[in-house]
Design a protein around this nucleic acid. Structure first.
Length: 423
RNA sequence: GGAGAGAUGGCUGAGUGGUCGAAAGCAACGGUUUGCUAAAUCGUCGUACGUGUCACAGCGUACCGCGGGUUCGAAUCCCGCUCUCUCCGCCA
């Protein structure tokens, strides 16, 4: 959630931000409810104050004396009134909360205007885009694909979008995870293994709830949610905590399987491994001091890029425009890898600065030595990286005329060989 | 799954209906003193929201695991839930 003060004092700035994000949040209603709520709070507190004073007076009176009984009679009325106003306030609080949570984070000034992906700005392209040869085909058309990926049995066992990785496929997926984790470790990012299910409080703190409930798998009995990304448990790792200033910045990474229902995404881009319901990903999290968060975003993006460079995969970096970025982000970069077989850019990483939007929800603070106050940290996260689409790019770009797949050197030791053979 | 115990401020820990936001101790912070270290001594020492201020201050309200109830009044009584610990069973 955004800063309440900002909302009240600079509604026009907030309105402009909402518009830039092409969000349909109705700020006037939010402000109206806010004002109503504040008025009611003042009323209830005045009543309570009166009650409290009278109760202190009563404590001094002899029990059962006429004055005492008189007071009781009087206060019964006040008490009833408080009860009534209080229940009104509770109701209003619920509505207010819902409205407040519906206000998106505001985009940074450096974020370009635009309403969809066409508005994104390519800030960088790296690597040579290979010329498409006759043997370059989409991975899902490889005739020996079922030797490393088994969609059919995945569908039988679980459902569409839950493929089995088999043999070299399983090994390649695991190699990528190991490679990503080792790289992170080398960069000084501490590894964490996270729970794959979170409770409602955690899902709310990172913004999956209430809006994106339909995107998560849920357990029937226990009100737990399968994580759509390790970002959720990892961000919540420090929820409700006040961190020592000297601990900042904190960098962590976590490998996890990610579960996404991908409700409503039919047809487009769903072939093969392009979009699946379960996939592996290494996620990087940063908790930093506010004044450093935009530098931290750049270094996070550069780190994610370094992984693609090490794998020799051509990619581009996009600065997301207002209309195409997420609800909670102030600034977001996407990295897309080139898949020569499909002649397509595939998103493999998204690096974002949330500023205090998440930390405010999750109440992650630090005591600032200068102001002496508890301030919200800024959080950032980025994929480093998501496995399946990197897997796809490796297959399609590494494909040789003889049908085998050449692997980048960085993976040789993990795979125990330099290529995947077609037979 | 069965039986029992518990949940109070950064920590330890008092408090069983009425100036309790909450004793005491520890830790922390600021000052004084002692030749250093150590000790002694005085003071400060929760969070959130509302109000107010240029900003402080101030004022008000809430918060003793969470949610409800009883009462003029609840940390304290009642009900439900969650979590932690101990013992037994089961299990990777």
């Amino acid at each position: 959630m955004i800063d309440l003060k900002l909302l009240r004092e600079c509604p026009d700035d907030v309105r402009a931000g909402i518009a830039k994000k092409r969000n349909d949040c109705d700020l006037d209603t939010v402000l109206a409810v806010d004002e109503e709520r504040r008025k009611l709070i003042a009323e209830v507190e005045t009543l309570r104050s009166r009650q409290k004073a009278a109760n202190i007076e009563m404590a001094g009176l002899p029990k059962g004396s006429p004055e005492f009984l008189e007071k009781v009679k009087e206060l019964k009325i006040v008490s009833a009134e408080i009860k009534e106003q209080d229940s009104k306030l509770k109701e209003l609080d619920l509505a207010w909360n819902e409205h407040y949570l519906s206000v998106p984070n505001l985009p940074d000034a450096s974020v370009p205007e635009g309403s969809d992906e066409s508005g994104n700005v390519e800030i960088k392209q790296w690597g040579d885009i290979p010329e498409k040869q006759s043997y370059h085909i989409p991975h899902y058309e490889l005739d020996w694909l079922d030797r490393i990926l088994d969609f059919k049995r995945g569908t039988k066992v679980t459902g569409a979008g839950f493929p089995f990785f088999v043999g070299d496929g399983a090994r390649l997926a695991r190699s990528l995870v190991s490679f990503f984790l080792d790289q992170a470790n080398e960069a000084g990012i501490q590894e964490v293994a996270v729970p794959y299910f979170v409770n409602a409080a955690s899902a709310t703190a990172t913004g999956q709830l209430p809006d994106k409930e339909g995107q998560m798998y849920q357990t029937v009995e226990d009100e737990l949610y399968a994580i759509p990304t390790a970002e959720v448990p990892l961000t919540n790792f420090l929820r409700d905590e006040i961190l020592p200033e000297s601990d900042l910045p904190i960098y962590r990474c976590a490998y996890s399987a990610c579960f996404r229902r991908e409700a409503g995404s039919y047809g487009k881009d769903v072939r093969g491994l392009n979009r699946v319901h379960q996939f592996d990903k290494v996620e990087i999290l940063k908790w930093v001091k506010p004044e450093t968060s935009f530098e931290e975003l750049e270094s996070l993006r550069e780190y994610a890029e370094s992984l693609l460079q090490a794998l020799g995969l051509p990619y581009r970096a996009l600065l997301m425009c207002g209309g195409d970025m997420g609800f909670s982000q102030t600034k977001q970069y996407d990295l897309e890898v080139w898949a020569v077989g499909q002649q397509k850019w595939l998103e493999v990483s998204s690096c974002s600065n949330f500023e205090s939007f998440q930390s405010r929800r999750a109440r992650i603070r630090y005591r600032d030595s200068e102001t002496g106050k508890n301030e919200f940290v800024h959080t950032l996260n980025g994929s480093g990286l998501a496995v399946p689409r990197v897997f796809v790019a490796l297959l399609e770009n590494g494909l040789q005329a003889d049908g085998s797949v050449k692997l980048p050197e960085a993976l040789h030791s993990y795979m125990g060989k330099d290529r995947i053979d077609c037979s």
